[in-house]
Amino acid sequence: MKIVVCVKQVPDTASEKALRSEDSTLDRDAVDAVMNEMDEFAVEEALQLAERTDGEVTVLLMGPDQGTETIRKALSMGAHKGIHVVDDALHGSDAVATSAVLAAALASEEGAGGAYDLIILGSEASDARTSLVPAMLAERLGLPQLTFAQKVDTDGANVTVERLTDYGHDVVTSGLPAVVSVVEKINEPRYPSFKGIMAAKKKPVSTLDLGDLGLDAAEVGAAGAWSKVEDFAVRPPRTTGELVKDEGDGGKQLVSFLASRKLV
């Protein structure tokens, strides 16, 4: 089985985030970059499915040069090869542009002309938190969408997932190829082993730019975005209110406070 897993590099959530005043994009220089945590679960799921089916896993990432670190991490976990789409014109791309680029990369020669059985993504990137890319990719590729999966099963011809819902879950099934996104409940991502890290250095990573994909710079990046940030403002941080030490009546004091705010 041939599997592609789409991974994004994001600012480490532990560091403070800010928008750049010049162009209202994330100030990436100010923070450390890591693999989007949800995508570690996507990589793990891809590896487990590949192990069961004697398959191959390709990692696909769109992002600046330093994105290679994230591709290497997926390769050191066990993925077989990488595709890195990098182009200055991609800076500021929204989900619409990102999904167009990922779709084009999958269709390219390096992307085996789209000859994949499964395309696995995380269900949300921790930076923009839009959860749009998986559904947009399925729409663009005309493939079945099986998203928010907490469990994935395949017999090589069909794929069945448990789609997490607010009321429980739906069992959703389709033929292959299909687009799947996973939630973090699905598995326990492995840590790269020393051997894996060494092996990753020799694994192939192809680098593609917009020209290779036949895409126009005007369709992507901030210029091609279909929405525009008009303005933004930083709110003053919350300040601590009243703190009391429980001396036996902490619960009562809490409720008095709630009553003073008309919350009980």
Binding site: G241, E242, L243, V244, K245, D246, Q253, L254
Partner: peptide, 15 residues
């Protein structure tokens, strides 16, 4: 506690 309007320092099983 940095962002609370009201905080109780204590054991939740009491409070």
């Amino acid at each position: 506690f940095d962002l609370v309007d009201f905080g109780v320092i204590g054991d939740l099983f009491d409070v």
